[in-house]
Amino acid sequence: MPRLFLMRLACVQFPFQVIRPEEVIYASVLKATGLIEAEFNPPLSPNGKYVPTRTAIVICITDEGMAELKRLQDERPRRWNRSARSAPPRFW
């Protein structure tokens, strides 16, 4: 799913605020893999306790992220063409 989120990010204006919990997780995965630059709320509350990050700000898609988007774009038509035009394999 982070790949789908990356494709979604290709269509937004930056900086982009992420507030849905699952998308915050996707953003953290994409940042960890170097595909986007993002900032997250600090994981500590003012009293020093850990709190899960609830929002993120995606700053941009990195060059590596753009290369991944290009690879996904190039890969997509091949899968669709193969499944739409090829007959099921025969085993007899």
Results as ranks from 00 to 15, higher is better:
F5Y: 13
L6S: 07
M7K: 03
R8T: 03
R8P: 00
L9M: 11
A10D: 14
A10P: 00
A10T: 05
C11R: 15
C11T: 14
P15E: 09
F16L: 00
F16T: 07
Q17P: 01
I19W: 02
I19D: 07
I19M: 00
R20H: 00
P21T: 08
P21W: 00
P21I: 03
E22G: 01
E22C: 02
V24P: 03
I25R: 11
L30D: 11
A32T: 11
A32K: 14
A32D: 14
T33D: 09
G34E: 05
G34K: 06
L35Y: 13
I36R: 05
I36F: 07
I36W: 01
I36Q: 05
A38I: 10
E39D: 12
L44A: 03
S45H: 04
P46N: 10
G48V: 14
G48Y: 11
Y50R: 08
T53M: 15
A56L: 15
I59W: 01
C60R: 10
I61G: 03
I61C: 04
I61N: 03
I61K: 03
D63T: 14
D63M: 09
E64K: 15
E64F: 05
A67Q: 14
A67W: 12
L69V: 02
L69K: 12
K70I: 05
L72C: 07
L72N: 10
